[in-house]
């Protein structure tokens, strides 16, 4: 299980990083979202993956670790705010600069 999760997270990170390195804003934003998924999963996995029961006090069984969950929960919401900010910035930039290239100049400069 650990191996599988590690590989999946690695694949998601690789895909996210590749997209981050693209030259246009939209793929970069998609890369950002992909990377958020991967990072959230990674942090969540730090609480280990053996649990069968949610982190609710009083439930019998192997409960999941609530601390990374609390971290990830807010991270998901903040991640949304960040994504929204990034795409709005991309919109504004493409309106002002007439290009959706991340360097703002349509990639004309070397």
């Amino acid at each position: 299980m650990a191996l599988l999760v590690a590989i999946i997270i690695g694949i998601m990170v690789a895909c996210g990083v590749y997209l981050l390195l693209r030259a246009r804003t939209f793929p970069v934003v998609m890369g950002l979202i992909m990377l958020s998924y991967a990072v959230n999963l990674f942090i969540f996995a730090m609480g280990r993956l053996h649990a069968e029961v949610p982190a609710v006090a009083g439930l019998a069984g192997d409960t999941s670790d609530p601390v990374p969950q609390a971290l990830v929960l807010t991270a998901i919401v903040i991640g949304f705010a960040m994504t929204a900010f990034a795409v709005t910035l991309a919109l504004r930039a493409s309106s002002e600069l007439d290009s959706d290239h991340v360097d703002g100049d349509g990639g004309r400069q070397p």
Binding site: A2, L3, I7, I9, G10, A14, V17, A38, M46, A57
Partner: peptide, 30 residues
């Protein structure tokens, strides 16, 4: 670059998941 980044994160995850851990979560549970 993407492959290197993915590999390093995967190695990190693998390294952590195969090691024993102590959580402060128990305190919160109690």
């Amino acid at each position: 670059i993407a492959g290197a980044a993915g590999t390093s994160v995967a190695l990190l995850a693998w390294g952590v998941l195969t090691r024993p851990y102590e959580t402060i979560g128990d305190y919160f549970m109690e």
